[in-house]
Design a protein around this nucleic acid. Structure first.
Lengths: 204, 204
DNA sequence: GCCAATTATACGATTTATGTATAAATTTAC
DNA sequence: GTAAATTTATACATAAATCGTATAATTGGC
């Protein structure tokens, strides 16, 4: 029997290391702003106030750092997603929150990061696609649950639903709409209203 | 006598050339987004759908393009400035418009462009500083005119006035203020009101 | 076909980025 | 304080990107 319990104190993982997190954070900041291609390891080190040697101690190379950042992003998003799903609110409110989450994220990351990622590295490309698929399937499940609960009409295709969510997300940043409804929140409410009920007058 | 009038049709200057403007525009777009350092001549050419050779036909090098873009920016701003000054509106309205102009510009350009410019090339640095000084002096003149017209109090220093305008510009993007007054326009009105009249109650 | 403008390609030269080795400096624990 | 561990500074060989130009091929208008 293995009663020889190893009572080592919690291994000081990289995550708790000051230099490590500095590199991760400045790396993320720069990548979001400029994309990975345009940022060098040395620049990250300089701005993180960490020497290049320590960088290569914690990360195999720039690619490795990128992957870790990506993983972190996806993990956080997933966590927030599941948190919303567990909340005791109506399905409609969940959709609202999830779209809001999506919007937050897409603002936070800037487009540059994910865009450029797909046209550079094959490994990362695969990684992102895998994760995107996971998210996609999650949303499909969500959609089906909505149908089961009777909030979404049965004759609607999941793919169409997904497309609509994408569209709403983009519409919020549409320049023409911005001039029509300048305030972000109001714009969002209008779009959401349209998304749920279309243009028809209130149903009796 | 020189009645041999040369009736050449208006020389097709570079400005009217399709390729030239394509390079200028995509160059500007990329520079604003990433700064000059992070953008290569080849990238500009690719995205402008122009060959590298044609680039070097119109521009000596990347620096040359940058200078031309900068010149264009300053010229446009100056033009708009003088246009406002000529308008038959009150001095107060002029200040309002000029601050608005300043804000528009600083949004348009993104910070990256001008920032990185100052830490790379000496020639461009000098250029920007020269132009900035011109703009500064223009604003000082404007300020003095305001004092003469009795809109700005006499005991105020021009440097302080300039600093305040800078501050207002920055405040508009202040994150905390954004949560207090989310709407841009409303935020602007509040700041402008504060700028002109302080926090005091209406004067009788 | 001719002309002008543009492009594709290739190239050497230069600059920048990468990843590692080494020794010095700093921090941490004892 | 001192020893050990961590981090840094520096230098370096290598690889990759960028630059600016030369040349020949291509395009589009007349």
């Amino acid at each position: 029997m293995s009663t020889t319990v190893e009572m080592k104190k919690e291994k000081t993982t990289d995550e708790q290391n000051e230099k490590y997190t500095a590199l991760l954070e400045t790396g993320q900041k720069l990548f979001f702003k400029f994309g990975t291609k345009r940022v060098s390891v040395e620049e990250i080190c300089q701005k993180a106030d960490v020497s290049k040697m320590t960088f290569y101690k914690y990360f195999k190379d720039k690619n490795d750092l990128t992957k870790i950042i990506l993983q972190k992003i996806f993990d956080e998003a997933m966590q927030q997603y599941h948190k919303i799903m567990k909340e005791k609110i109506s399905f409609t409110e969940k959709i609202e929150k999830i779209i809001k989450l999506k919007l937050e994220k897409s603002n936070e990351y800037g487009d540059v990061f994910l865009e450029e990622l797909l046209e550079t590295n094959e490994e990362l490309k695969a990684f992102v696609q895998k994760k995107s698929l996971e998210a996609y399937n999650l949303n499909i499940d969500f959609f089906k649950k909505g149908q089961k609960e009777g909030v979404i009409r049965k004759n609607m295709k999941p793919e169409f639903f997904m497309l609509l969510i994408e569209d709403i997300t983009e519409m919020l940043h549409n320049e023409k709409l911005k001039t029509i409804i300048p305030d972000v929140h109001e714009r969002f409410e209008e779009l959401l209203n349209y998304f749920f009920y279309g243009i028809a007058n209130e149903r009796s």
